[in-house]
Design a binder for these strands. Structure first.
Lengths: 243, 243, 243, 243
DNA sequence: CATGAATGAGTTTTCATTCAT
DNA sequence: TATGAATGAAAACTCATTCAT
């Protein structure tokens, strides 16, 4: 599971995002771009780091294990990233945009039913495909967001404010029940990410998790229908087959 | 915030639970009982450990900081608990029962509206009063539940199965919309715990968190109303003022 | 040679100074003083560190070698001093006062002949007994005095300014030739310390160094007579036998 | 200050010496001579190395910084010099001859007043123009002269012995007071080099150093007059303006 | 019950040097 | 000539744990 062993990415937009993200990650390193080999190694490292950090947290992770998983020597890894913290930050950056992207797709011109259903579906698919990213992000925030707090306060805040206004407009237009938009967003985040972050618990209780196609569909359906009903939108049951 | 500096406990049952837990935790340690001072020190350690582990995770926590926060020497702390892992396990145990208690109160004989609303309210109040416990638990599960997986698979699974049956009965009785009970439970867990686990993010986006009485009420109302509406229960709006 | 293997300190004032210094070093650590064992180990470490740092410089020194020379494990050494830099600073402090002390003894009420002769003699004996201290100090200053620059600019400057005024007074009183006092002080420092700092070169050129009693006397005589004559003081040849 | 950024060389003979040295150093490298670019790069490296080694000492210096300062890659630098130690040795060689050259100019046929005054002036100007060289040399000797001890014992010893005989002759001829010649030489070295090696301390105490023309003249005057008076030579005050 | 002293295993990092192109 | 990539050995810490008192 996760970026590394996820196989061919399942949904179009996720592939697209990952591709975009990589490009951006690259040219932020040095003017002039990276050599083929650098690009390859950086990616290997970041994917190994994502696994290690999400499994063990920052302190529990070791540079040596990341290097081993990336198939290179510790020294060589440190040739690419100056320190453990630098790897960690790069890994967060590697993930952050992808992780926050779905919210951007919420289209003010669309109908809340379709828009929110699509958003929830994307979030759940993210949880299914990139559970490690979800856990890494959760870990970072739970420890007080030492690295990304500024981003949360600026970029994310701006984005959330904007989308809250979209929801307000839908409410004003009578298209959905009056709810506090920010709590609606939190609810969507909470429910969808829960399936990635607590997958061990979910597996302990249900015997399966989002890695299973069938369970994924069920989850998508349950969450979407509960939330849409919760905001007073009659949700056409025949969705959830989108994949 | 948290167990230690929680100030006057907000709700009756939580106080009751904590008190109960303490007694139980304490006298389950060693046959023969503990001296007054032992009892006091164990509690000091566990509360310090809760803070440290929840802030830093298992690997990031240090025995020295726990000892310092508990106001004793490292050596003395290790007189009470044989190892860091032992402290960690004791801390988990210290918390687990309290953390899982609310679900037990779901009364089959009650009406789903009242029962679920009460359950949600309890969970949110737990998040408000014991955010460190929530984070500790989340951390443990996210890292694969190395210590508590067996408990999840046995005790928790039994409890969840039982309550799922309760919900099924309510559905069969036509008292609520047909939803997958386990997903309903997950949704309640996810949304309520989210406010504790991601409080830094919530604060970054809203400027406040559950520590604020006003925000706590808002959250309680939003979450409860969304979920109850989501399962087809008309929820009397004037609740949420229960505190 | 040096503090450690210097045997019983040769001259009274040096012993006195070292003793004074130690006391000061001790109680600057923690209120309440150090235990017997701590005092012993701190001293062992500082003396080992003095040797290592003076031989290899800060970068060339290794904590492991200092620990070995102090007869303890690296970890135990780091129990006493938090870092290599801390050891280095403590070593500088351990030495600095002793190193700068002789200048303080320059007595305005005395005759320049006696006073300066005594000062030169002290400085040369310092070089003979604590060549490692001299080299450590030289090293520090030559690398730009990263640690002690503030002390040079404040304490030392004050002291030098004061003693320059003493010399000015002697000049005004017609007791010595008109020279720039600060250059006189530099000349005394330079010549006396040179025998410690460049002892390897001196040994290569003369076959001996200040460790040899005979050479020590010669040096004392040559330097004192050259400088005193240089400032127009007829120097009674029978001194230099003071030891 | 130093070789690199020395600006317009102050005195004729120093320029001459440096020039001579360079030629000699260069074509002594490899039989067959060096290409234009090799010659240039070797010089760049040696000048960068001089700065780095004199600032940080051998252990504190890094090949990478030398390479950076020389404007080339580490790998390329190591193409020119097989190892860090090789660079260090070459840098010492690059400097040594210049550093020791002034003593050679002491002319037995001349008058001690002129000869010694000229020698002192040369040494002080060396300190002013090549303080880095002075510090490098001091560092090497203070660490036990690991690289140049043989040279000190052979070449330098021969030279010093020879010049001691010159001084003896002057003494025998009644041209100066009876002093131990070797101590006289040490005194000249010590005083003149002190202004380069301890320039940070000098600046801390006087606010200036040999980089300042005015201070340079003062120093030259003070040191020369003190030493010449010290050996019983009446020194014509109006010199020291030679530059 | 309590603590200061000591330690060994592990972890991050630095850096001279080598390799391949 | 020149350089980017890679590495191994060393070094400075960190920290849970043990020991002695």
């Amino acid at each position: 599971m996760g970026v590394r062993e996820g196989g061919p990415a399942g949904s179009e937009w996720a592939v697209h995002l990952m591709a975009g993200l990589r490009v951006r990650t690259q040219d932020s390193v040095k003017a002039g771009g990276l050599s083929r080999i650098q690009e390859k190694n950086r990616t290997l490292i970041l994917e190994a780091a994502l696994g290690e950090f999400s499994r063990k947290g920052f302190s529990g992770a070791t540079v040596e294990r990341i290097a081993a998983e990336a198939g290179m020597s510790k020294s060589n890894l440190l040739y690419y990233f100056a320190s453990k913290e630098a790897i960690y930050n790069a890994t967060l950056a590697y993930i952050l945009e992808v992780w926050l992207a779905p919210l951007k797709t919420l289209n003010p011109a669309g109908e809340p039913a379709q828009e929110l259903a699509a958003y929830i579906r994307q979030k759940i698919e993210m949880s299914a495909q990139f559970p490690e990213a979800s856990r890494l992000f959760a870990n970072e925030v739970m420890q007080g967001a030492p690295q990304i707090l500024p981003i949360l306060q600026s970029d994310l805040k701006r984005l959330v404010d904007e989308k809250c206004r979209v929801i307000e407009d839908w409410i004003s237009a009578g298209k959905m029940r009056r709810v506090d938009p920010v709590h609606l967003i939190f609810t969507i985040w909470a429910t969808t990410q829960h399936y990635a972050d607590f997958s061990v618990q979910i597996r302990a209780l249900t015997g399966t998790d989002l890695g299973d196609e069938e369970f994924l569909r069920q989850t998508e359906f349950s969450v979407t229908s509960l939330i849409l009903n919760g905001i007073g939108i009659v949700w056409p049951q025949e969705s959830g087959q989108s994949r």
